[in-house]
Amino acid sequence: MKPGVTPLIEQPSLWKREMKRLKDNRVGYLFIAPLVISVALVLLYPIGKAALMSFQYWLVTKPKNGHPFVGLDNYRELFASDYFYRSLGITFLYIIVTVAARYVLGLLTALLLNKNFKGRGLVRALVIIPWAVPEVVTCLVFILMYDYRYGVINDLLLKMKMISNPVAFLGDSHTALGAAMFVNIWKGFPFAAIMLLAGLQSIPKDLYEAATVDGAGIWRQFRSVTLPMLRPVSVVVFLLLVVWTIKDFGIVYVLTGGGPSRVTEILTIFIYKIGFKTFNFGVAAAGGMILLLISIVFTLIYLKATKAGETT
């Protein structure tokens, strides 16, 4: 701006600017309104309803009884059931094993894909296949491959002499949970791999050069450069995996339906069965609230962890 040209005419008064900002913000509200309305109607309202139902008598098969409030009865019924605690244990085991395995396998894949070699593009394209295959289809293919008589996995293991008799992987209560976890790991590791690969690629190259100059070997570089630099992405991946796995339903449901003898009954299946097999919506809603509580705890940890990542 040239000196001598007075800017006063162009500068709107504070009042006018404030009005303009308010008017503009109205447009902002207008733009966000559909999101808020749809989330409120289709997500928040049902959650509120579920919270209410968890304190009500709600047996679908006996509509004549109405839905009187029963205090904490539904929760009490839940906590009195041994299967609830078993299911809780199974859920935690399922989360810990599959998240850890997907993370480690994803990290190994990412480290590999971060190297320069011929055919890297092809390997990356192949690695994302499990992510793309629909959940139900994944389960069906594995049901076939796990089959006791005609399954290729039994065939291979027998040929390699790793087992002496065929195993009904999904039908045997010793192997069913492990078999279901394996499917989850197969399906989920590409996501971890792709996210971590992006994280690896954002690490500045000169850090490695400096480390090499300082005489750090490969293992030392991995520990002192790669892992610390990867921490923010790792935190995000790790907690996304945990929260998603808490919600996981389809894989185990289609593979085993929670059986045999309920050894694969993760919390989501436990709740679904109470809801749609015994039609006791009250108890099912109470179980759902517990599940939500677990998710919220992890969300808070997630928020804290990402905040910590931002400040450091």
């Binding site: 049902p46 579920a50 808490i246 919600k247 709740i271 609230m289 599940l291 998710s295 919220i296 992890f298």
Partner: peptide
Amino acid sequence: ITQMLPGSLLIIP
């Protein structure tokens, strides 16, 4: 928060 809502909780209401 919506990312954390389990489908099996939503499904009943």
